[in-house]
Design a protein around this nucleic acid. Structure first.
Lengths: 192, 192
DNA sequence: TATCGTAGAGAACGATCGTTCTCGTGGGTA
DNA sequence: TACCCACGAGAACGATCGTTCTCTACGATA
């Protein structure tokens, strides 16, 4: 049946992406071979290359799927709050929980850019897409709180700095520090 | 003569590090082979391995030498200003000039951590050393401006976010945005 | 001048990696 | 039942990379 084939392919792609995400995020992209992904996913190498004709495509798909989930999870957390200003600060609560998770290993896109941004245009493009989407989400939250776009951009920079620093230092404290800074910026910007 | 040998070795190491820095910073570490560094430096492979017994050592030395120069250049720029608060903002002027340079390719340490932080302890250590030194410099500037350590940490996060974002977007604007945020934080923190 | 040690140029080695190919098997169809 | 094809397992291939080895030439010393 045609739809059964499509279902099987989709399920196999999910399994491939699950393994790829676990390995790429934890150990970096270049240090994980396709053989390892085959072992971890249980798929044959032939099937893997049918689904993703090159490793680069698998990397793209990994970043794309993670982007959707990452931004969805963030939005779900943020929208548990009603107050528009509180929603901005909720970003940093969520980041703090993420930083403290045992498998936290920094921002997947900052890492991927550091690793392949200079050599792979598709990867660089995927990173830019994610970061502009995240920045737009933050400036959107600012606009809904009657705050200028400039504040959204500043909060975005704080979030980026917190992610980079939490990865390198291995502590979740940058989230709280960035939250305090965002709070100060909001109150300083609120009434000019 | 003994000292002549030492001088020659030091000069050769400089040439190796010059080539390594140019190539590693621009194209990433893993995508540059030792053969390329040999060609670019004009040194023989044997001499290269006498000076740096493994590629990892050359990477360490690259990060270490760049750290010294980066922080020295920053300090020289900052200390052209007398006012302690102005000195903090001068960080972002310097970052803005750096971001606009034609060969800017992000923060060498954030990039190196994304590429090798998970697989190379010496590299991860070198990145942590650089970032803690930079953070201490910023909090020191804050202390000299009678501002709390928390402000220094917030300014540090803004600088990190600006570096990561300038790399990914390819524009120098994050420096100005971070500078505005730092200015707001300073005035909001100055009188409680 | 004859010799010895050193250094450079580049071949060679062993490992790894992305990708493709071969082989064997099992299930669906006439 | 006999045939065919699609798939999985894993070997194989070609390229690359870090590192070492070989060979040759040269310069200092007795």
């Amino acid at each position: 049946m045609d739809t059964a084939d499509a279902d099987a392919a989709a399920a196999a792609a999910e399994r491939a992406l699950d393994a790829a995400e676990r390995l790429f995020y934890q150990r970096g992209i270049q240090s994980v071979g396709m053989d390892r992904i085959r072992t971890e996913s249980g798929l044959s190498l032939k099937r893997l290359y049918q689904l993703f004709p090159a490793k680069e495509r698998l990397v793209e798909a990994y970043l794309e799927r993670r982007d959707e989930r990452w931004r969805r999870d963030l939005a779900e957390h943020v929208e548990r709050h009603e107050d528009p200003e509180r929603r901005i600060l909720a970003i940093f609560d969520w980041l703090g929980e993420w930083f403290a998770a045992p498998d936290f290993n920094g921002c997947a896109w900052i890492n991927a850019y550091g690793e392949l941004g200079a050599t792979s245009d598709p990867v660089a493009r995927q990173v830019r897409l994610h970061k502009t989407a995240f920045k737009e989400y933050v400036t959107d939250l600012a606009a809904r709180a009657d705050l200028p776009e400039s504040l959204g951009e500043q909060v975005f920079l704080l979030a980026e700095g917190a992610m980079a620093t939490a990865a390198i230092t291995g502590t979740p404290t940058p989230a709280a520090q960035a939250s305090q800074a965002a709070h100060l910026l909001i109150t300083a910007t609120r009434r000019p």
